[in-house]
């Protein structure tokens, strides 16, 4: 891993078009700004990893959840007709 030391107001450039700026900093927390093209997705890493886990679990439970649905009966859902 590349390790760089930066102060508030300084920045890091990644490639030609991604700039990460240190906006505020303390030993406990950093506030950073990210300037990146729209084609680059930006996530908090721990959130992204949690979404990955949820999607993998959802795929694993598809048959199970479907069988739960078989025990349920649809009633009128006018909102869905408007929304589709």
């Amino acid at each position: 891993m590349l390790i760089l030391t930066r102060k508030s107001g300084e920045s890091i450039r990644i490639g030609n078009n991604i700039i990460i700026s240190i906006l505020e900093g303390s030993t406990a927390q950093l506030k950073i700004g990210i300037d990146a093209p729209k084609s680059v997705a930006v996530y908090r890493n721990e959130i992204y990893e949690k979404i990955q886990e949820q999607n993998i679990a959802a795929n694993a439970s598809t048959a199970e959840i479907g069988n739960i649905l078989l025990g349920l009966k649809k009633v009128n859902t006018p909102a869905i007709e408007e929304g589709r």
Binding site: N55, A58, N59, T62, I65, G66, L69, T77, A79, I80, E82, G83, R84
Partner: peptide, 9 residues
């Protein structure tokens, strides 16, 4: 595959 629901509901 996974099951989903329309968020508008």
């Amino acid at each position: 595959s996974m099951l989903a629901i329309n968020a508008k509901l």
